[in-house]
């Protein structure tokens, strides 16, 4: 069997189903390379290969793709359009595959999620493209799904333990790909940790329950990932403070965060980050926010 190497860029989609694809390829015995954590080099690669006005997270994602380009045979780039009509995603999510296809000559492993296609179809499509039989793919899919759910359950369990203790707590409302990216969100987490404050992440809550709760805040919201994020707010009624964290200029957050900020009556901090945000300024803002919480 010829050994192909599949590259998984550590950006955007990685934070939603990275565990799934990693264990899927592991089970099929395919070698994978995950691009390293975001650093200055990757950001510079991304800035060079993307239009100026695009959001920072997408620039970083393109940087990861650029980094992997000459190291692997295939790159995994999904296209997530919508899960159904009330669960849509950002327009960048559905156009980025076409964008990379236009400018790069590397082979792309692509799967598509829309009204008629699910993640399962995607797994079969990719398995077939790599030349595996149906049985192998089914086994790998089951294994990967199990690992993915186990991972999520573990995270949710950890978070529940944090909720039940008596420390000062802050909820970070953000897209998963912003807060878990160490280059973007790492500083904030570090400053909060230095001040002995526990952190809750908006993406580690039960998705279905969060979706229902989000309707209280915004009945017509049709972006899935935004709904998951703001649904978490109603989960923890006695939270001390909320930090809204987004990159400049995120299309969804510009509207959703503004709406939520107008509706909740709790201490909040709205952080918008771009590639030239200074850490010192950020530190000052967060520390003064922490002081506010402690008084």
């Amino acid at each position: 069997m010829n050994k192909v190497i599949v590259g998984i860029p550590r950006g955007i989609f990685y934070y939603y189903d990275g565990v799934f694809w990693n264990s899927f390829f592991y089970s099929l015995n395919v070698r994978t390379i995950i691009s390293p954590k975001t650093n200055k080099e990757i950001i510079n690669l991304g800035l060079l290969s993307s239009p100026d006005e695009m959001c920072l997270s997408m620039k970083i994602y393109l940087g990861h793709i650029k980094y992997l380009e000459d190291k692997v045979d295939y790159i995994l780039i999904p296209r997530i359009d919508r899960f159904d009509d009330y669960n849509q995603t950002c327009t960048n999510f559905l156009a980025i595959y076409q964008y990379v296809l236009h400018f790069s000559s590397i082979k792309i492993l692509n799967y598509n999620i829309d009204n008629h296609h699910t993640l399962k179809d995607g797994a079969f499509k990719i398995g077939k493209e790599l030349g595996f039989s149906r049985c192998e793919i089914i086994e790998a899919y089951k294994y990967a799904l199990k690992r993915h759910q186990e991972y999520l359950r573990k995270k949710i369990f950890e978070q529940e333990q944090i909720i039940s203790n008596n420390h000062k707590k802050v909820l970070i409302v953000s897209h998963a790909y912003n807060i878990h990216d160490e280059y973007l969100g790492g500083n904030i987490l570090k400053i909060l940790k230095d001040n002995q404050i526990d952190v809750l992440y908006s993406n580690y809550f039960d998705e279905q329950k969060a979706n229902v709760k989000a309707l209280e805040l915004s009945p017509n919201l049709y972006w899935k990932y935004s709904r998951d994020a703001i649904g978490s707010i109603s989960f923890v009624p006695n939270i001390d403070g909320i930090i809204f964290f987004s990159t400049f200029p995120c299309g969804l957050d510009s509207l959703v965060n503004e709406l939520v900020i107008r509706k909740i009556h709790k201490p909040y901090l709205n952080i918008i980050i771009d590639d030239s945000t200074s850490i010192t300024g950020l530190e000052t803002r967060i520390e003064s926010f922490v002081d506010l919480l402690e008084n």
Partner: peptide, 16 residues
Amino acid sequence: SSFCTPEILIMPIIED
């Protein structure tokens, strides 16, 4: 208009 997300992504393609 500025910050129009779908158009930003396709501007390089159009230029190309």
